[in-house]
C-alpha cells in the first residue's frame, strides 16, 4: 500500500498542496483526479522523491522511501525521460543495466504490442509513440506499484486506446496502479478507486463501484458534485 499522509508543498509562496492524505492499494487501479494545476503531478513526484515536501510522510508498504523503493515502484512521468540521442534499444539496455527489477522478455512483448521499432531514436518519436515507449520503460519493470502521470493526455485516439488496453491485461493485473488524469470520463470503467484533489486537499476518496451501486453515480457525477461547489 502507498500511503500519503498530510502532504504539504509550497511553491513560489503558494500552497500547492495543503495536507493531502490518501492510500493506493496493491492490486487496485487508483486515480488521482483534479483540474489542471490541482497538484496531481506534484503528489506523484513527491512520492518518488523528485521534489521535496514541505511537510508530510510517504510510506510504501509501511516503509519510508529508500533506495530499494525504486525497484518496487515504477514512475511513468508525462514525458519521456531518455535522452534524445539514444536509440530505443539503447534506452532498454540502460534500464536493464540499472534495474534488477527489469524484465527484458516483458519489454520485448510490450515493444511488439505497441509496434515500436528498436532502431528508432528517442528524439524522433511522435507524441503518441513517445507515450507508448514511456509506458514500455515503466511497465517492463517487475514492480509492485506503477505511478503514471497523465498517461492519456495529449495523444491521438488510437494511441489512447492501445494504452487503455494495457490496463485490461496481466501487465497491470495484481500491481498497484496510481495514475493522474484531468479527464476521467473515457477511462472510468478501468478504475477501482478515485481520489478527488481540489484546492490542495483531498475532497473525496471513494471506491467507484460502491458509489455506482449505492448512489447510482458515475465518477464524473461525483466529480461534478464535489469539485464544482
Amino acid at each position: 500500500m502507498i500511503e500519503v499522509v498530510n502532504m504539504h508543498k509550497r511553491y513560489r509562496l503558494r500552497n500547492v498542496l495543503n495536507g493531502v492524505s490518501f492510500t493506493a492499494e496493491k492490486g487496485q487501479v487508483t486515480c488521482l483526479i483534479g483540474v489542471n494545476g490541482a497538484g496531481k503531478s506534484t503528489v506523484l513526484k513527491a512520492i518518488m522523491g523528485l521534489t521535496p515536501m514541505s511537510k508530510g510522510t510517504v510510506r510504501i508498504d509501511g516503509r519510508a522511501r529508500e533506495r530499494e523503493t525504486y525497484e518496487k515502484v515504477a514512475f511513468i512521468p508525462d514525458h519521456l525521460t531518455m535522452p534524445s540521442y539514444m536509440k530505443l534499444s539503447e534506452g532498454l539496455r540502460f534500464m536493464a543495466d540499472f534495474y534488477q527489477s527489469w524484465n527484458q522478455a516483458r519489454a520485448g512483448e510490450l515493444m511488439k504490442f505497441f509496434r515500436l521499432d528498436t532502431s528508432e531514436r528517442v528524439g524522433n518519436l511522435s507524441k503518441g509513440t513517445a507515450a507508448k515507449y514511456n509506458l514500455v520503460i515503466g511497465l517492463a519493470q517487475d514492480t509492485d506499484y506503477v505511478l503514471m502521470d497523465e498517461p492519456f493526455s495529449g495523444i491521438d485516439l488510437f494511441s489512447r486506446e492501445s494504452i487503455a488496453e494495457v490496463f485490461s491485461t496481466d501487465l497491470i493485473d495484481g500491481r498497484g496502479v496510481l495514475l493522474t488524469t484531468h479527464e476521467v470520463g473515457e477511462i472510468e470503467h478501468l478504475l477501482d478507486k478515485a481520489v478527488l484533489l481540489s484546492h490542495g486537499t483531498v475532497a473525496k476518496e471513494f471506491q467507484c463501484e460502491q458509489v455506482r451501486s449505492e448512489e447510482g453515480k458515475s465518477v464524473v457525477d461525483v466529480m461534478r458534485e464535489v469539485l464544482w461547489v
Partner: peptide
C-alpha cells in the same frame, strides 16, 4: 483475464 481484455475493463 480474457474477459477483462475483451471488454476492456479492469481485471478486478
Amino acid at each position: 483475464r480474457e474477459l477483462a481484455a475483451l471488454f476492456k475493463i479492469n481485471p478486478n
